[in-house]
């Protein structure tokens, strides 16, 4: 189980620039599906990478699905060398993306995001259209099932307007 509030608060506290995507963003837009992890797109500047490493370190991040005992350290050097990380932490599964398929870098996602209040703080979420585009671009069967629900949400919201 992922403690969304704990992870989000830690990122906020360190001033990390990030946007919530994936299943939690789908929930934000009205999805009824169960998601088990927190997915975010993060900004790739050196300063933000430092902040990100500092925010996540207390939760003992480790590569999800990797054998135990690898010399993995989620530090600025590792983040700079990589791009996307699927992590297991003490507070749940956490996926960090430097780029989002179908949308692009943090800057491109930011253009298609909106700010909302959650757990007493302000966070950015990818908008519904960009989320649908990213899921379509990912193209896996499970993503297309999500696309179907998100498109129904869009239809329902349009009807309510």
């Amino acid at each position: 189980m992922t403690q969304f509030e704990t992870l989000l608060s830690a990122l906020k506290k360190e001033g990390v620039s990030f946007i919530i995507i994936g299943g939690v963003a789908a929930t934000f837009h009205g999805s009824a599906r169960l998601t088990n992890d927190l997915d975010v797109v993060y900004e790739r500047s050196a300063e933000n990478i430092e902040r990100l490493a500092r925010a996540v370190a207390p939760f003992k991040p480790y590569l999800r699905g990797a054998p135990e005992g690898l010399p993995f350290r989620f530090d600025p050097a590792t983040i700079k060398r990589g791009l996307n990380f699927t992590l297991r932490t003490d507070v749940g599964d956490f996926d960090l993306l430097g780029e989002l398929t179908g949308v692009g870098s943090f800057a491109a996602v930011e253009v298609e995001s909106l700010e909302a209040s959650l757990f007493g703080a302000t966070y950015r979420f990818i908008n519904l259209n960009a989320l649908i585009r990213s899921k379509r671009a990912a193209g896996r069967a499970k993503d297309l099932e999500v696309v179907a629900e998100l498109e129904v949400i869009r239809e329902e919201r349009d009807q309510q307007r």
């Binding site: 009205g30 696309v147 129904v152 949400i153 329902e156 919201r157």
Partner: peptide, 24 residues
């Protein structure tokens, strides 16, 4: 996607849309 859309429970979606994002 069109095939899957037929299986989406719209009553559940409508109920969810009545809640605030934080409640969801």
């Amino acid at each position: 996607v069109e095939f899957y859309k037929d299986g989406v429970d719209r009553t559940l979606i409508r109920e969810n849309l009545r809640r605030s994002p934080e409640e969801r």
